[in-house]
């Protein structure tokens, strides 16, 4: 499956799960800020990706699982270097450059983009092949 085909399927999932228009789903769009995803939507997206692509997603594999509520990883409103490293290891499909520049917790939502979802699906499909 080409990257464009993966993107089209991810776009269908997001249009369905978040009730957004197709043209809103751009690679750089953030799930939370631009597309209005709330916490339950992330679970909905996981279920729909599993259905569309036929792979299973483990808990915490696509989105971080309670990292932001762990005192070791967040101090004074900033993601600690240890937290950043943990996120980087757990979420290889995510581009962390926004957090490298500013590790404020409020920036975490900005790293979950449509492009990160596409990369995640590509990795899962490659592993499945």
């Amino acid at each position: 499956m080409t990257r464009e085909e993966v993107f089209e399927k991810v776009r269908e999932v997001l249009v369905d799960a978040l009730a957004v228009d197709e043209d809103e789903v751009r690679p750089e769009a953030t799930l939370n800020g631009d597309l209005g995803a709330e916490s339950i939507d992330f679970l909905d997206i996981v279920f729909k990706l599993e259905q569309v692509f036929g792979f299973k997603v483990a808990q915490g594999e696509l989105f971080p699982d309670n990292v932001m509520s762990d005192d070791r990883y967040v101090k004074n409103g900033k993601v600690t270097p240890e937290g950043l490293e943990t996120l980087r290891q757990r979420l290889p499909h995510v581009d962390f450059s926004a957090l490298d520049a500013d590790a404020d917790v409020s920036k975490v939502a900005e790293i979950f983009t449509v492009d990160a979802l596409v990369r995640f699906c590509e990795r899962k499909l490659a592993a499945k092949a």
């Binding site: 916490s39 339950i40 992330f42 679970l43 989105f63 932001m68 509520s69 762990d70």
Partner: peptide, 13 residues
């Protein structure tokens, strides 16, 4: 419908 299992919520509440 979508249901959440509160004791395992993603926010860690």
């Amino acid at each position: 419908l979508m249901f959440s299992f509160l004791d395992k919520n993603m926010s860690g509440l």
